[in-house]
């Protein structure tokens, strides 16, 4: 069995030292130790359980520790149909997460309402909170969910350390009425 170690970010290496930007170093650490908060409401949640279990094992990507408290979570995973009545709950969970935070919408329902084009269902969670990665499928297979997670990892690695101070990010938050 071989142990895989994440590649070092680009930097300057010499005898006994390695220099890189703190953005890259922190990004590497964050990306490989994401704590996801599962918000599972229906069948996509079942696929997520398979994703976390031994066959697919999301722990391989550093996400073995699920956080059931939003205050300790880095990544909100919304999986399943979100009824309009559930919308404020999703939003509150998001608000309780500390920065930096990312959101992944797993499945057709969380992304767009899916087949539930009806009066009682929220037509995509991006109506109430900003979303970083959308995973299509009804429900998506565990491979697709892992693909979404690795997309999130790319974002985490490459985002500036203080993205929450950027005017774009603040404008995005303001568009959702989040301070």
């Amino acid at each position: 069995m071989s142990i895989q170690i994440a590649d070092a970010p680009p930097g300057i290496q010499g005898q006994g030292f390695f220099a890189t930007s703190i953005d890259k170093a922190v990004g590497l650490a964050r990306a490989n130790s994401l704590w996801p908060l599962p918000f599972a409401t229906s069948c996509c949640g079942i696929e997520f359980m398979a994703t976390m279990a031994s066959n697919y094992d999301m722990a391989r990507f550093g996400s073995e520790r699920l956080s059931f408290s939003p205050r300790q979570a880095d990544l909100l995973m919304v999986m399943g149909t979100i009824a309009k009545k559930m919308g404020p709950v999703v939003r509150q969970v998001y608000l309780q997460m500390a920065e930096p935070r990312w959101v992944i919408a797993v499945g057709a329902c969380a992304s767009s309402g899916g087949i539930f084009d009806t009066y009682s269902v929220l037509q995509g969670i991006d109506k109430v909170i900003p979303v970083d990665v959308y995973v299509p499928g009804c429900p998506p297979r565990p491979e697709q969910i892992i693909d979404g997670i690795t997309k999130i990892q790319e974002l985490v690695k490459n985002e500036p350390l203080r993205r929450r101070n950027s005017p774009e990010y603040q404008a995005l938050m303001a568009s959702y009425g989040i301070k």
Partner: peptide
């Protein structure tokens, strides 16, 4: 009891299309 309090109509009356009438993205 089941729908959001802000709802302004009674959805199972046979007066409305089934789809959400307030969406803009489809």
């Amino acid at each position: 009891i089941l729908n959001v309090d802000e709802m302004t109509y009674y959805p199972l009356r046979k007066e409305y299309p089934l789809e959400d009438q307030h969406r803009t993205d489809k």
